[in-house]
Design a protein around this nucleic acid. Structure first.
Length: 594
DNA sequence: TGCGGCATAC
């Protein structure tokens, strides 16, 4: 924020005349480039400055910045009297440069030389461990930090919150966060983003709200992390509120903030708002473009995605591997087979990118959804090097189910189960396929195996946000305070859609595996309850009803919601695990292509 | 010389 008081610029006084020596200037001139640095090094040796500590420190730091960590290490350990500052600086430079293993090496040198520590060493080495997701080493570093008296240093504590978050230890991260006495805005930000990055968007949002309650002023990184959490949770109301603050506080629209806004709107279902922001942004990088393309893809707007991709190729930054995941997935969800095939070829021939599992997966999915099961199998055999991973077979299995190819489906499912025996979703799909082909004795067998092996399928839920509050509905949910009204509303709604021609798609009920779920059947699936609640609460309003579902929407709910959108004359938008469904006038934007 | 931020398959 603008500070109205007059202050001296500290930088104009920080020039140390000592650093103006010709040797030091030669190092600065060489910069982080290995060749020139080696020449400057040679001159230092000739001029007799080889044992000057400040010059060695600068030289070695620049070598790390040039990526030559082992050269820097050699310089440091061959110095007759290296000091703590030298190793701390190198640890930090290596961590900063994305050389975490080298950072650990410098940190060990500091330990073995029995030199004093500074908090800088701990923040740097904690970051290195975080980047490596090296929990055990990180815990040792944490112990050292406490031992050497830096346990309550705010910078060190914050770096440790990052470490535990990156290692997935959110409970530990939170405990450390709570223990920080004067939490800086950075501490709040890392806690928000720690939850968000670990898929705990609701917790991230809670921390953001706590931060507001604590009267802490957010900065642009706070908003970036919070918008990501909103995108993940589908929390549109909060996302809009954050947007309002960003605009009203005239916050600098960094490339991060811009991409976060585009992403939030796309993933909350407002793909046009996402595009408005995309067009408005001054600065767009590969992530901004990729977010927008992915946004079109998940809404089934394959042609828009391809159009934007072509525009990107003409006037945007070069697409990277993630861009191609978004492009291929967009093609798969819109049935654009030849466009997808072209993009896949371009990726390799023009951009020299090596396809990963995600790309193969999208290609198989694309052929498979389009009903080209033979092409999908051929692609698996001809284009994928080595053994295809389980993700590829999962895509293939989905296609078999979609196009009711039972023989191939059973074959693929058995292959998958052999590959990942503990993954319940493969068995759920296999039982779906048996159910669809009417082999109820086989369904029963799969179900019994799952019970015996204690494999539980993921519990589905649907969320709806009303007035900024998320209401969660599982199948047969009865804990909501308005349960009676909701069920009554749903009963009436089902009567009305039945009059309009709705016939329950009972295929979808056959794979319900848990006992307690069976008694409720399709009628009370979470998404139906959530839609009923949404319709009930929005009587008279024309704003679309927005539902977020954690799994894929089932066939019967898909059908029922189409009818609901017609009889209630209301747009209903459902985000499921894979994409958006916009229901309007009895039709869905996915055109049964999901 | 220190802690933090955006996009990805089923």
């Amino acid at each position: 924020m603008a500070n109205s008081s007059i202050q001296f610029e500290p930088s104009s006084f920080s020039m140390n005349p000592h650093h103006r020596s010709p040797e030091y200037n030669a190092l600065l001139l060489a910069g982080p480039r290995l060749g020139p640095l080696k020449q400057a090094h040679a001159r230092l040796v000739v001029a007799g400055y080889a044992s000057s500590l400040p010059l060695t420190t600068k030289l070695a730091t620049l070598a790390v910045a040039a990526g030559a960590a082992s050269y820097a290490h050699l310089l440091a350990v061959s110095h007759p009297a290296p000091d703590s500052f030298l190793f701390c600086t190198l640890t930090r430079a290596a961590a900063h440069r994305g050389l975490p293993a080298a950072a650990l090496t410098f940190y060990r040198s500091l330990l073995t030389a029995a030199l004093p520590f500074s908090s800088f060493a701990f923040t740097a080495v904690a970051k290195a461990c975080a980047d490596l997701s090296a929990l055990r080493v990180g815990m040792a570093v944490h112990a050292h930090a406490i031992l050497f008296g830096f346990g309550s240093d705010g910078f060190v504590q914050t770096a440790l919150v990052v470490l535990y978050s990156k290692c997935g230890q959110l409970a530990v991260a939170r405990k450390l966060f709570d223990a920080i006495r004067d939490r800086s805005v950075v501490a709040w930000n890392v806690m928000i983003s720690g939850y968000e990055q670990n898929g705990l968007a609701e917790r991230a949002i809670e921390v953001y709200k706590e931060m507001q309650m604590a009267g802490e002023a957010p900065d642009s990184a706070t908003f970036v992390a919070t918008l990501s959490a909103c995108a993940q949770a589908g929390a549109l109301d909060l996302g809009r509120e954050v947007e309002r603050r960003i605009v009203s506080e005239r916050m600098d629209m960094s490339v991060f903030l811009g991409a976060a806004l585009v992403n939030m709107y796309a993933r909350c279902g407002l793909v046009n708002k996402a595009r408005e922001w995309f067009d408005k942004l001054q600065e767009r990088n590969v992530v901004t473009w990729t977010s927008m393309i992915a946004g079109y893809g998940m809404h089934g707007h394959g042609h828009e995605a391809i159009k934007l991709f072509h525009l990107m190729r003409r006037e945007g930054p070069p697409p990277n591997d993630v861009t191609f995941v978004a492009v291929l997935s967009a093609c798969a969800h819109a049935g654009l087979v030849s466009e997808g095939r072209d993009a896949f070829a371009t990726m390799k021939s023009v951009y020299g990118l090596i396809p990963r599992a995600e790309h193969y997966c999208s290609m198989v999915d694309m052929y498979g959804r389009a009903g080209l099961l033979d092409d999908a199998m051929q692609f698996i055999h001809d284009s994928i090097p080595g053994e295809p991973g389980p993700e590829v077979w999962t895509a293939m299995l989905g296609a078999c189910k979609m196009h009711k190819n039972f023989n191939l489906g059973v074959e693929v499912a058995e292959r998958l189960i052999a590959l990942e025996p503990e993954n319940p979703s493969h068995r759920v799909l296999l039982s779906n396929i048996y159910a669809l082909s009417g082999k109820m004795n086989h369904v029963e067998k799969v179900r019994n195996t799952m019970i015996k092996r204690r494999l539980k399928k993921q519990i589905g839920y649907s969320l709806i946000e009303i007035g900024g509050i998320a209401h969660l509905f599982r199948m047969g949910e009865k804990s909501h305070p308005q349960t009676r009204d909701i069920y009554q509303y749903l009963e009436e709604l089902i009567h009305r859609i039945t009059d309009a021609g709705y016939v329950p798609e009972t295929d979808s009920v056959l794979h319900e595996l848990e006992e307690e779920e069976r008694e409720f059947a399709l009628r009370y699936h979470g998404e139906k309850l959530a839609v009923a609640f949404g319709l009930m609460m929005s009587a008279g309003s024309t704003a679309p009803i927005r539902i977020i579902k954690n799994l894929r929407i089932c066939g019967d709910c898909h059908l029922a919601i189409k009818y609901m959108s017609a009889v209630e004359n209301q747009e209903i938008i459902v985000r499921d695990k894979h994409r958006f469904h916009h229901f309007k006038d009895g039709k869905c934007s996915c055109q049964e292509y999901w």
